[in-house]
Design a protein around this nucleic acid. Structure first.
Length: 568
RNA sequence: GGCCCCAUCGUCUAGUCAGGUCCAGGACACCAGGUUUUCAUCCUGGUAACGCGGGUUCGAAUCCCGCUGGGGUCACCA
């Protein structure tokens, strides 16, 4: 297993216990970028040593989310995904699932025990828990008391060989350990801060600390970039590396990201938002299929209880609330573009420290830029708050910058997964026609529908906004109503009924009658949409089609005349 | 609570390592004006920050100390 120390190798190692969290996505993105920048390899490893919490579906979801973001891996799980094979094992350092590497871990653990760097311990979890509680009551920090070391070595080894249930603990050195962190600088932690932690659990699986060190070393990982929550773990990892004779990789710990109120971005935020909305709506029973009233009540009462994703989404739709996006999947569903999300994520904690031609700071960039410029030098040290509003602005810009055809196809792709009714109502050609009107008016692909909401209403179900109707049709000298009546017959003759032809017809009509555009456009707008706000008139009319337009104009005229006669 | 990390506009940040060119620059948000048949886009301008207290220095956002504040971590989770 030859490892080239000159090749940068980074890794992302998620545990498949849920969706890919936005924080994890940022870690993966920056690890990926660092490897690309140095012409190295980015590898993916699945940390599934927690047998009770890991699942196959979580793992697949994570891979899918990474692929959606545009993060690809040189080594890692070799899975078929959308007919495309991702990953490979050219170097022969797999497998990339920790659960398949038990022999490797055991081999190393045996080495540690034989060299007296580790030892078996036989206390039960209950015994340890009791000791821990005592320590807390006595207000002293809990540390494992090494009582297993009181057992003579021979006896310990024999009991282990006899199959007595045990864990294996690493004997921590009694000198301080310094982490040379690329972002934070040197961080030294004294020996009093650590106890002899467990490296193999009672069930025979290694703990995270052991597995991560062994895998990183054997897979040739040169740079470990991860969240700051791991900083305190690093001395433990260094201790294992030293005991095993491994070189330590270069470490870089990045600041964590938080909600704008300073709280941790947690998957539970979604449930929290939904619970609040349920209480405000004073819902008694479960409003959605598949969720019993009893389960609903249980969920509502228990702050920590979470609903399955699909039920939560159904509930949110029912209550018309927007759930905060936490997982990558949430951002996908909400209609974010991966480019915008990646851009924002990278910028949260990293700064390219470069200027645009106009002297402003470089903020907007694509994956290619990241892959050629990312480095630890630009990383900030402070914790950052996740600003959804700024992300939304990035997303809106990215959408607006898309050429019409690209926008239309992305919009359609999104809708086919998350808003099938939109695809039924509009063909691909329709959506292309809609593109210029919609793309500058939506911040996410999901709010594209809102821009053209009037098209989803039946012609005879349009409700005219009273205020708008009055202002556009009834007020003033040159009555909008008169213009609308005159234009009604004109509209029927427009052929083809395209945005351009409609615009031209309105323009000609205005010139002929010597009135300003507004005098005709606003009444028409109210007539076909019911309200005073819509995309440009040509598109607005073309979207619903000629027959619908004429029908709506007639209904509006009738409504206005009724309002007029009611007044008199 | 022990240990560790951090601290510039409301938010993300540039500037801090090599103290003066910073009465602190950019972006998002906000406010005002302009373009536009509405809305949106777009353009122009504006409000807004060096947490506090001590030092060092001719001079500190930048160096040192303390305080305060925020965060992480103390699992047979990762």
């Amino acid at each position: 297993m030859p490892i080239d120390p000159n090749t940068v190798i980074t890794r992302f190692a998620p545990s498949p216990t849920g969706h890919l969290h936005i924080g994890g996505a940022r870690t993966a993105l920056l690890c990926w970028a660092y490897a690309k920048r140095h012409n190295g390899r980015f590898l993916l490893r699945i940390e599934d040593t927690d047998q009770t919490r890991s699942s196959e579906s979580s793992m697949k979801g994570i891979l899918e989310d990474l692929a959606w973001l545009g993060i690809d891996w040189a080594d890692g799980p070799d899975l078929k995904y959308n007919d495309r094979t991702i990953g490979g094992d050219e170097r022969g350092v797999g497998p990339y699932f920790q659960a398949q590497r038990l022999d490797i871990y055991n081999e190393h653990i045996t080495r540690l025990i034989e060299s007296d760097h580790a030892y078996p311990a036989f206390e039960t979890p209950e015994e340890l828990e009791a000791k821990r509680r005592e320590a807390i009551e006595a207000k002293v920090g809990y540390k494992y008391d090494r009582s297993a070391l009181d057992i003579p070595r021979e006896e310990r080894m024999q009991r282990m060989a006899d199959g007595e249930p045990h864990v294996v603990r690493l004997k921590m050195p009694d000198s301080p350990i310094t982490v040379h962190d690329q972002i934070l600088g040197d961080v030294t932690v004294g020996p009093d801060e650590f106890d002899d932690f467990i490296i193999r659990k009672r069930d025979g699986y290694p703990t995270y600390h052991l597995a991560v060190v062994v895998d990183d070393a054997l897979m040739g990982v040169t740079h470990v970039l991860r969240g700051q929550e791991h900083l305190i773990n690093t001395p433990r990892h260094i201790a294992i590396q030293q005991a095993l004779g491994f070189d330590s990789p270069t470490y870089a710990h990045m600041p964590l990201i938080f909600n704008s109120d300073g709280s941790k971005m947690s998957k539970r935020d979604k449930d929290k938002t939904a619970k609040k909305a349920v209480k405000e709506a004073k819902l008694e029973g479960s409003p959605i299929d598949g969720l019993s009233d009893a389960d609903f009540a249980k969920w509502l009462k228990d702050k920590t209880r979470q609903l399955p994703s699909d039920q939560l989404i159904a509930l949110a739709r029912h209550l018309d609330v927007h759930l905060p996006e936490i997982d990558v999947e949430d951002f996908r569903r909400a209609g974010y573009l991966p480019d915008a999300l990646n851009n924002y994520l990278a910028l949260l904690g990293w700064n390219p420290k470069a200027k645009n031609d106009d002297g402003t700071d470089v903020e907007r960039f694509d994956m290619g830029y990241l892959a050629s410029h990312y480095g630890f030098e630009g990383m900030g040290k402070g914790q950052a708050k996740f600003d959804r509003v700024k992300l939304l602005s990035f997303n809106a810009d990215s959408i607006a910058e898309l050429p019409d055809d690209a926008f239309a196809s992305r919009w359609r792709d999104w809708a086919s997964s998350y808003d099938p009714a939109l695809c039924e109502r509009f063909s691909a050609e329709d959506m292309l026609m809609l593109a210029p009107a919609v793309k500058t008016r939506c911040k996410t692909l999901a709010d594209g529908r809102g821009v053209i909401g009037f098209a989803f209403i039946e012609d005879n179900a349009i409700e005219f906004d009273g205020k708008a109707l009055h202002k556009a049709l009834l007020k003033g000298e040159a009555k909008g109503l008169e213009m609308l009546k005159l234009f009604r017959d004109e509209a029927a003759t427009i052929d083809p009924f395209t945005p351009e032809a409609i615009e031209q017809a309105v323009k000609d009509f205005c010139e002929k009658h010597e009135v300003g555009m507004g005098k005709v456009a606003q009444p028409l707008r109210v007539a076909v949409t019911g309200g005073p706000v819509s995309p440009p008139l040509g598109q607005t009319l073309a979207i619903i089609g000629k027959d619908a337009a004429v029908t709506r104009i007639e209904r509006c005229i009738a409504e206005a005349e009724q309002a007029l006669s009611a007044k008199e």
